[in-house]
Nucleic acid binder design. Structure first.
Lengths: 196, 196
DNA sequence: ACCTGAACACCGTTCAAGT
DNA sequence: ACCTGAACACCGTTCAAGT
């Protein structure tokens, strides 16, 4: 929130919590999850590793902050006239776009819980569309969470195999994952929104 | 495969690769993923950590072997008269049962690739049912993979929040995750198998 | 062949000390 | 208040040496 030192008097701060989170994300994007060490984050900020502990209680807190920062970066393109199925789809696309922008962070996002507030802020506009469509709130939440875990699981599969392998199956087309994603998402949305 | 020492002559082996994998799984189940260190696995087998390197090239190889061992443990209850939707469902239930039997290993299974052979052995009987139903093989694989990533993503969400938190929402019923899982799986299977 | 202790280059984190 | 170097208790892994 505040970029400037907060305490009255005392030595002015060289870094803020936001600086630490930003450096951590840059490090993960550039060099992968294993490169995210306290020493490396400190070095990137021109500061000793121990200084970070003045702003965050430890490495776990850095990971949690990274996850919440990335989730709040998700942009859901929700046209005013979007119905409930369209809202689910827009949410899935926005979430997936963020994940593919930060491939090395996907295992982290799959593993670390998201703050309730951050999750709510993201879900609320989507759930609004379900209310307009007369869907029960519990059913809407179930559908949205199901779509979320599908998106996460799919992204894990896509970014999973490290680049150092000869794994890309001989004839896998470039849009293999895009087509698979579209098929799975369509099936799930149809299943949730079609009235039987 | 072989439980006895293989080389001719030389000192008889105290442990085998299978012993290492079994000890690693027992350790993860009992104490969590962080407890899976080379030193701890060695200790559990009454052997120095360095001995493990005679049987597996390193820690990464242990993790890969754990994943493949757990996946081959999946039991799919596939009645002879099961149709394609039933086969998808049986696969999902069997996979999920394995994941919930090893909650601490779920992040590993979500993150490490599965050997092609292990995956094929598990998928083949299920895909046979799609052929009998006249489904194109590509579509069948897409559906099966989509179900798989949903199952994995859902399990991650279920086992994700560590036990040390006050996170369980006040009124979450005991079967919250079971109901959510059933709803998501039903939607996906319906979407994939209903002829439009 | 297989196992081992000592050693190396890392971690996260604590602590007492500096400004 | 904030930052720091030294130190501690861990890691995975290499190596030379034992049997």
């Amino acid at each position: 929130m505040s970029g400037a030192p907060r305490g009255r008097g005392g030595r002015p701060a060289l870094i803020t919590k936001d600086d630490v989170v930003a450096a951590a994300i840059a490090l993960v994007d550039a060099e992968g999850l294993d490169a995210l060490t306290m020493r490396a984050v400190g070095a990137r900020l021109g500061v000793a590793a121990m200084s970070l502990y003045r702003h965050l209680p430890g490495r776990d807190a850095v990971l949690a902050a990274v996850v919440n920062r990335l989730v709040s970066e998700v942009a859901v393109d929700l046209p005013a006239d979007a119905g409930w199925p369209d809202a689910l789809r827009a949410f899935a696309l926005g979430y997936r776009a963020m994940l593919l922008r930060h491939p090395h962070a996907v295992p982290l996002l799959a593993t670390q819980p998201v703050d309730v507030d951050t999750g709510m802020a993201l879900a609320a506009p989507v759930l609004d569309r379900s209310r307009a469509a007369g869907i029960g709130q519990d059913d809407a939440v179930t559908a949205l969470q199901s779509v979320t875990v599908f998106v996460l699981g799919h992204a894990l599969a896509q970014v999973g195999t490290p680049p150092g392998a000869e794994d890309p199956p001989p004839a896998a087309p470039a849009d293999y994952y895009d087509r698979w994603f579209a098929a799975g998402l369509n099936a799930m949305i149809e299943g949730f929104t079609r009235t039987p």
